[in-house]
Design a protein around this nucleic acid. Structure first.
Length: 203
DNA sequence: CTTCAGATGCTCT
DNA sequence: GAGCATCTGAAGA
């Protein structure tokens, strides 16, 4: 598992470095794993797109002020969840949104969570856009607001640099560091000029 | 491939 | 009451 200090850094750096890492989800004796492929940075200090813009502190944004690595999970549009991992030092409200992952372990469970079917029954269309959105990530990995404010280090949710680290088979040699693409964040038009910040990253 | 409407409930004003 | 860090299926090009 990554050290808490991984998250206690500049949010854009953490968002970039989370790409290629593995999200581990444990519940009911199950272990699910997925490789992070898309992230976005949100920084309350100066970012109008962030829920905690200008240190706005409400019941909802409280977890953003918690120690680095804390989970921030909220309900969006009444029916989907978004997973974030808190960054920077405690008291600096900032986080990285996990926008996309690619499953590596527990595919049948993940397919069941998302489409109520087995992995082999997925249609080509379902496979192509399997976990490529924040709501899809949470649905597939069974993440909801019960995990909100979960402290870093909890077995229910971890991030590792490799699957071997937790006794799972990983890719033999993952090659060099993947090329990182950069662009503006999705769905934050309300943030004015800050919507143009190139704080979305994907591989 | 693209656009588009509708679903749905919580949070803050 | 307004708005939201979204997703899906249907319809059209």
């Amino acid at each position: 598992m990554l050290p808490q200090s991984f998250f206690e850094r500049d949010t854009v750096t953490v968002a970039r470095e989370l790409l290629g890492k593995y999200l581990i989800r444990r519940y009911d004796g199950l272990v699910l794993a997925a490789r992070v492929t898309e992230t976005e940075a949100y920084i309350g200090r100066m970012d109008r797109a962030c829920h905690a813009y200008h240190y706005r502190r409400t019941k909802r944004t409280e977890p953003l002020f918690a120690p680095p690595g804390t989970a921030y999970v909220y309900l969006i549009y009444g029916m989907y969840h978004c997973l974030n991992l808190v960054t920077e030092e405690e008291g600096e409200p900032a986080a990285v949104l996990i926008r996309g992952v690619e499953p590596r372990c527990g595919l049948d469970i993940i397919a069941e969570n998302r489409f109520h079917c087995k992995a082999e029954e997925l249609s080509p269309r379902q496979k192509k856009h399997f976990l490529d959105g924040p709501g899809k990530v949470c649905a597939g990995l069974n993440i909801d607001r019960r995990l909100n404010a979960l402290p870093w280090g909890s077995p229910e949710l971890e991030v590792c640099a490799s699957l071997a680290e937790i006794g799972l088979d990983g890719p033999p040699g993952d090659g060099g560091p993947p090329a990182i693409h950069t662009g503006p964040r999705i769905g934050v038009d309300y943030a004015g000029e800050d919507a143009l910040l190139p704080w979305r990253f994907w591989i």
